[in-house]
């Protein structure tokens, strides 16, 4: 005869345990659903409020003076692209090269400091960036400008691009670097032709994420690019951007402007969403072996 196992639960205990387990799993499912809810809320409101105001004129016309109906945000759309291009031309080279330094050259000690500072920079509130660049580029030149806006966004991109570049470079197996070195190839050639090329998708992904992140920034632009209602012809002049125009339209008293703000938000969101989808596609098969 065998002694009954004391750790064997009774039928009642067993049923209770199963119930608790099921309840907890259900609770977690609800929490997961709550995480997803806001994105649907955002999309729902944007489409409901903005879709009706989207028309050809929105993409082609300048904003109309207050009181007049119609008009569009063409200058802001172009302005956003101009600002992002300028930001990328600062953020990408500096960020990528900084990331390469971190991953390939930096000493342990220097790296931990650089990483720490990059992480702090990442956490600097965007309005602070705006103020700093305002003090740096707007005050001395006595004018708001596209340059200042681009620099503000570019500076924000640097730590993001740098950290993601570093991370994907570290993921490239050491074996490729060693194989290159063992062939008597100079180190910088190995890094550019072999390592960076292997990690290129990941680096582009990082750049896109950083671009998406700064594309919607408003605060730093308020102090730098300022925004306007017409075409900007010089980068040394203020320039408009979608978030700026959305902001100023949304706080205005006119219903027509409110509608256009929703439409602008929808366009901005669609742009950022498509960047994110692109990231998804690029990073789907990121394997190095």
């Amino acid at each position: 005869m065998t002694t009954p196992n004391q750790f064997q639960p009774s039928a009642r205990q067993h049923a209770w345990r199963k119930f608790v387990s099921g309840a907890m799993a259900g609770l977690m499912l609800v929490c997961a659903a709550v995480v997803m809810a806001p994105i649907f809320l955002v999309l729902y409101f944007l489409i409901r409020e903005g879709a009706t105001s989207l028309d050809w004129a929105f993409f082609t016309q300048l904003p109309k003076p207050s009181g007049e109906l119609g008009g569009g945000m063409a200058n802001a759309i172009v302005g956003t692209f101009v600002l992002l291009t300028m930001a990328a031309s600062i953020g990408v080279p500096v960020g990528v090269m900084g990331g390469i330094y971190l991953a390939e050259y930096g000493s342990e000690r220097a790296n931990s400091w650089i990483r720490f500072m990059a992480d702090v920079l990442n956490g600097v509130p965007s309005i602070v960036w705006g103020m700093v660049v305002w003090a740096l580029l707007v005050v001395p030149f006595k004018t708001f400008s596209a340059y200042a806006g681009g620099v503000a966004l570019g500076l924000m991109m640097i730590p993001l691009v740098m950290r993601t570049t570093e991370e994907v470079l570290i993921l490239v197996p050491q074996g490729y670097r060693e194989a290159g070195l063992a062939l008597g190839i100079a180190r910088w050639k190995i890094i550019t032709v072999i390592v960076v090329k292997t990690a290129l998708k990941g680096i582009i992904t990082g750049i896109l994420i950083a671009t998406a992140r700064v594309a919607g920034e408003t605060a730093p632009l308020l102090f730098t690019a300022l925004g306007n209602n017409f075409w900007s012809h010089r980068l040394s002049e203020p320039i408009s951007a979608l978030p700026l125009l959305i902001y100023s339209y949304a706080v205005s008293p006119y219903d027509d402007w409110h509608r256009q703000a929703w439409a602008g938000a929808l366009v901005l969101m669609a742009f950022i969403l498509s960047l994110n989808i692109l990231v998804r596609l690029l990073s789907r098969d990121r394997k190095f072996t």
């Binding site: 074996g175 194989a179 290159g180 070195l181 063992a182 062939l183 008597g184 072999i194 090329k197 190095f288």
Partner: peptide, 27 residues
């Protein structure tokens, strides 16, 4: 030195972005 003294590693490591021919000729 490494051009004169080549090395083959435990784990095979052809460069993933390169063709067979490019792998051979990269050095």
């Amino acid at each position: 030195v490494r051009r004169r003294v080549g090395m083959v590693f435990q784990k095979s490591n052809p460069f993933p972005t390169m063709s067979i021919a490019d792998n051979v000729l990269v050095g």
